[in-house]
Design a protein around this nucleic acid. Structure first.
Lengths: 348, 348
DNA sequence: CTGAAAGCGCTAACAA
DNA sequence: TTGTTAGCGCTTTCAG
């Protein structure tokens, strides 16, 4: 079998092209001062040797790895499509994406520490709770941290989220217009800021219109948890006829339980609404009414914040953005549709 | 706001600990010859300065980035759970995971080139077709390439796949035992080696038992494509009563079409089987009978091959493995269950 | 515009 | 076991 070669380096190219090694570097640096002629020579020699600039070496000297770390506890819970779009958009700016899946039973900081050793230029944290110490350390070395679909009270951290409050309010209004009698909420993990916001928007909007009693159960953002929650809700003598779930997956699970275990008709007997508009929500068997979390615009915001900071030469402290990207109510068939032609509108 | 510091480096630690810089390096190198006392001193100083070895610098000199590139065209088509497990397992061996989503309308080599510049130590390609030139280049610089759920005729590349042939044969047998009259197959992309294998196993096994006529339509591995394919199949005067789809997602789509557009009862009027056992296959509304692709063992194989090569000091040419991981028939309710021995599988 | 020289932060010989 | 000395492959002053 053929022997393994050592890849050619800038010096090899320089020698072949008859120029200095720095000329090679310049030929591969956009905007460097180099004559067209020299560049041609270099590029020709480079192609001949299949030379590829070594990004690791470049990183060492520029102190920029051009790697963004993305961490989450579960990848399937994390929107895979978002990761996909993010990866493509980041690469367009010259950044690579490294993933760090965190085992929730272990210490998140351990993994994040690994990321720091790898010199990531920025962090995107989804479904992950970094310690305050960790965030502080990132700030002290100038690495921006962006929370995705999470909130933080601290002003030391950026965040990009969907419109949890606005969306839940819209859902509450939609449900009320559908003329339901009794409302329930299936929450995500108890420590989830997102779930709390969705709950708040929902109950507040209901409350503003006189609905004070909202049953609440926790589904933990898992399929099984949502099943259990739904069973609890539907076994009650005064079972709700409208359930809002803090995530689409929980809504799908609740829908299954309602149909197959309680023989309920959706939406005649029971309306179920989710949040997020995942792919499966559109599948005919579910046809889930939900509020969308627009992936493209979430990614836009993330990339904008990151590139903004990098072009300014690093996170200099100061401004920490809290971007909220509004989605829209996606009306399908899992919830009763208001009879008259009433506007869903912005209310208030 | 607090100023941004320059992270401390080995020299800083050395000075504080009163040792040489190489002692610092040794303290962080498992198995290096260093006295316990010196190591203590170093570690103490390191902690005090929150020193973290710079992996980029290490990579430059060891010529090992300890990064594995994983590329795919669509992340949602790719099994997100597999990526998750892979990430965790690779990190246990000190390797990071960098993802490279490839826009199918663009040139795959462009992205892979980027990965090469980033000095990935190995490549895992899922749903991606690298050019022969690219593979050759990887081989020439000693970077192992592993195809995941794909086959290659070339002997220059590793591959890890589920048991497409065996699984499809098992499905064919199961369907025949169910006493079906007319069989169909919905294929993935026409150039997919995996789809071809699933088709081959299916039709060959059917053929061995006298079933020569198998309708075939292409669903392109997409939801819409599978819907169109299913419509075509079910509109025929001699419509099949057993359909095997090259992927679970296509099977789900076909199931939806059969139920909602043709008002067919599953499995009474029509049996539908998929391949892969994705999460949604187990959801009650589908309860899809399928053949599993065991994620953990697929990852085991990938990691084993990779670590094996690395511990031998790089891909030296020669042996190229073709690992096939067998799964099992997962009997649920989307296909007629053979009357006699009703305990074929676990049904999860 | 171009080359020479000095490192980026670390590991890996080599002596001591 | 230790410190010293070279670099890894590149970017970046700094002269010319």
């Amino acid at each position: 079998m053929s022997k393994v070669h050592r890849p050619s380096v800038a010096r090899d190219v320089a020698k072949l092209a008859g120029v200095s090694q720095s000329a090679v570097s310049r030929a591969f640096t956009p905007g460097a001062s180099i004559s067209a002629k020299t560049r041609e020579k270099v590029l020709k020699a480079a192609k001949q040797l299949t030379y590829r600039p070594n990004i690791v070496a470049r990183s060492l000297i520029t102190r920029r790895s051009r790697i963004i770390g993305v961490s989450m506890t579960r990848l399937d819970q994390f929107n895979p499509h978002l990761l996909e779009v993010l990866n493509v958009r980041l690469r367009a700016h010259g950044y690579g994406t490294m993933i760090f899946v965190i085992d929730p039973t272990h210490d998140a900081d351990l993994v994040l520490d690994d990321a720091l050793q790898r010199q990531v230029d920025g962090f995107i944290l989804a479904s992950t709770r970094p310690s305050a110490a960790f965030v502080k350390e990132c700030n002290s070395v100038g690495i921006p941290v962006i929370l995705l679909n999470r909130y933080s009270d601290e002003r030391t951290i950026h965040s990009v989220t969907g419109d949890d409050i606005g969306g839940s309010r819209a859902i509450a209004r939609f449900l009320m217009e559908g003329g339901h009698k009794s409302y329930a909420f299936i929450a995500g993990q108890s420590d989830s800021s997102t779930s709390k916001r969705r709950e708040a928007g929902y109950t507040e909007e209901l409350g503003r219109h006189g609905v004070k009693d909202v049953m609440k159960v926790t589904g933990d953002y898992t399929w099984e948890g949502a099943c259990i929650a739904a069973r609890e809700l539907l076994s009650k003598p005064d079972r709700p006829d409208a359930i809002f779930c803090a995530s689409d997956y929980m809504a799908l699970a609740a829908l299954e339980v309602a149909r197959h275990e309680f023989s309920l008709s959706i939406p005649e007997d029971l309306s179920i609404v989710g949040f997020g508009d995942v792919v499966a929500a559109a599948w005919p068997s579910y046809s889930l009414t939900t509020y969308s979390n627009p992936v493209d615009r979430l990614v836009d915001e993330i990339v904008r914040i990151l590139i903004d900071i990098f072009s300014k030469g690093g996170q200099k402290g100061g401004k920490h953005e809290q971007a909220i990207v509004s989605g829209q109510l996606v009306v399908r068939e899992s919830a009763r549709i208001p009879a008259p032609a009433r506007e869903t509108g912005t209310g208030a």
